Amino acid sequence: MNSTRTLVRRAALTATAATAALVLAACGGDGGSGSAAPSGKPSSSSAEAGAHNAQDVTFAQGMIPHHQQAVQMAGMAADRASSAQVKDLAARIEKAQAPEIATMSGWLRSWGDDVPSATPGMDHSGGHSGGSGMAGMMDDKAMNRLMKASGKDFDTMFLTMMIEHHEGAVEMATTEKQKGEYGPAGELADAIVTTQTAEIREMNKLLGKNAG
């Protein structure tokens, strides 16, 4: 009788111990996988967010004031240009480049870098290595001449200046495509090259037509 009770007790103790071991193992497993996932995901997303280099920063900090000046030039066309085609082109330039300024400003803020605040047509040296010598940028004298022009003279001056301006943007974007690391910046650079190269061809045709 006593031996039977002893066997029952031993069996019960063994079952209890086994159950406890399984519960502890399960808890330990859940805790391990639960902590690994959260710690892994942020590091992965952080790596993606930080996948940029100095060229990407240079591109954004240079292209923002470059675009700002193009938008300012395009804004003059509404009441100064005589050609409907020039007005249409200027409106397209303004519509395309204003949102790109906002996009690039967002990148710089997310990277913890300075967003250029220089006024278009003024000194653009504010911290950017390219300074006022950025490719295609107009100086104050050129911007003032454009602002004072009207009619056919404005059309000719606008097209001539914007061709040079676009060529500078294409040059900057090409460098970004070659040396940049940030995917969205490379995509924007590619779009700039495609769009502005086509607009250069369009402006050259309009300039020839206007000269004739």
Score class of each variant (00 low, 15 high):
A198S: 08
H165I: 06
G127M: 14
W107G: 00
K141L: 05
V170S: 08
M172S: 08
E100K: 04
T103S: 10
E181G: 11
T119P: 06
Q196V: 05
A185R: 01
S132Y: 05
T197A: 12
V115P: 02
K148N: 13
G151L: 13
M147Y: 04
S110H: 04
A189P: 10
G151H: 12
A191F: 05
G151C: 13
M122V: 07
D123I: 04
D114P: 05
G180P: 02
S105K: 07
V170R: 01
A135N: 06
L146W: 01
L146F: 03
E167G: 08
S129Y: 00
V193Y: 03
G131W: 11
L146Y: 01
G130F: 04
E171C: 01
G136N: 03
E164Y: 05
M143P: 02
G180D: 06
S117P: 07
S132W: 04
A102N: 11
M147D: 12
S129I: 09
G168R: 01
G180R: 04
T156F: 08
L108V: 11
T119C: 01
A102D: 15
I163G: 03
V193E: 07
L159Q: 07
G133C: 02
G136H: 01
A149I: 06
L146P: 00
A198D: 13
D153K: 01
T195L: 12
I192D: 05
M122T: 15
V193L: 07
S129L: 10
P184Q: 05
V170D: 03
T194Y: 02
E176F: 09
H165M: 08
T119G: 10
W111C: 08
M157D: 13
L146E: 01
D155G: 10
A142K: 10
A189G: 12
L188T: 10
F154G: 02
S125K: 07
Y182K: 01
A169C: 10
K152Q: 14
K141C: 04
A135W: 03
E100Q: 14
T197N: 08
T197M: 08
A142W: 00
L159V: 11
M134H: 05
T195H: 02
A185F: 06
H165K: 07
E181M: 15
M134F: 05
M143T: 05
S117T: 15
D190N: 14
H128K: 11
G133N: 13
E176R: 02
F154A: 08
T119R: 02
E100W: 09
H166K: 09
Q196I: 03
V170M: 10
K148Q: 14
F158I: 11
L159N: 06
A191H: 13
A169Q: 02
W111A: 07
E187L: 13
E181W: 00
F158Q: 03
V193W: 03
G106D: 13
T197V: 03
G106T: 15
D139K: 02
A142L: 09
K148H: 12
D153F: 06
Y182N: 10
M147H: 10
L188D: 10
E187Y: 00
E187R: 03
R145L: 11
S105I: 12
S105V: 11
K148M: 11
F158N: 04
D155E: 08
M162Q: 14
I192E: 12
K179H: 12
H165N: 07
P99D: 12
V193K: 01
L188N: 04
S117N: 09
S150I: 01
N144Y: 00
H124K: 05
G133M: 11
